[in-house]
């Protein structure tokens, strides 16, 4: 059944050529068709020709069987092994990379911790220095203020003394002055009256 279309396909163009072509070609294709026909009659369509079926089955069994065994015993374990080694290696490398990354992260964290510590320490030192300077300044100011106050008190006391002595003298001076004025105006002066008048005026 498969033979017929194959031959139809083959012979149809050949006869078409024969009609269109020159005589020798026509003869040739004719001969060819005949030869093919002969071959067909003799052997049949090769794939359906059972003569060599046993031979093909035997040799297929031998070759495919050996091929199967060779692949199963040698090639496939080898390729499988190659792929496994590579997978292991990649997994191992990834593990190493992850571990190294962890190490790096830890180092970064430690560095940052140290940096923060140093910063805190420097802040503390600066604060201490500031505090100490402030305390010293305060103490000094207190000393200065105390001494100033003492001097102020001294000065006020002296002023008071001076003032008191000055005020004590004022009466005598006023009497003297009044007596002198009276003598030059009146010629005589009653000292006790002048003193009483001065005292009167001052109070």
């Amino acid at each position: 059944m498969f033979v017929t279309p194959g031959y139809a396909q083959e012979t149809a163009p050949a006869s078409g050529d024969a009609h269109g072509g020159t005589t020798p070609v026509a003869a040739e294709t004719g001969a060819h068709t005949e030869a093919a026909g002969d071959a067909h009659g003799k052997a049949g369509f090769p794939p359906f020709e059972p003569t060599y079926f046993p031979s093909q089955l035997l040799w297929l069994a031998i070759t495919f069987g050996l091929f199967y065994l060779f692949l199963k015993k040698v090639v496939l374990p080898r390729i499988g092994n190659i792929l496994e080694v590579r997978r292991d290696r990649i997994a191992h490398d990834l593990d190493t990379a992850a571990r190294l990354k962890e190490d790096a992260d830890a180092a970064i964290a430690a560095y940052e911790q140290e940096l923060a510590d140093a910063r805190a320490k420097s802040n503390r030192i600066a604060q201490d220095a500031r505090d100490a300077a402030k305390a010293e300044a305060d103490a000094e100011r207190k000393v200065v203020e105390t001494s100033l106050n003492a001097r102020l008190v001294d000065a006020e006391a002296r002023i008071a003394t001076v003032r008191a002595s000055a005020m004590k003298d004022v009466g005598a001076i006023a009497e003297e002055t009044a007596t002198a004025i009276l003598q030059s105006l009146v010629g005589s002066a009653d000292k006790s009256a002048v003193a009483a008048a001065v005292k009167d005026q001052r109070s």
Partner: peptide
């Protein structure tokens, strides 16, 4: 007829080529 034919030859060739390449 268990003859070694051109078909058998190419079966052998197929197996040899494939095996040799893979190996």
């Amino acid at each position: 007829d268990l003859s070694f034919t051109n078909s058998s030859l190419f079966m052998v060739a197929t197996v040899v080529v494939a095996s040799a390449f893979l190996y």
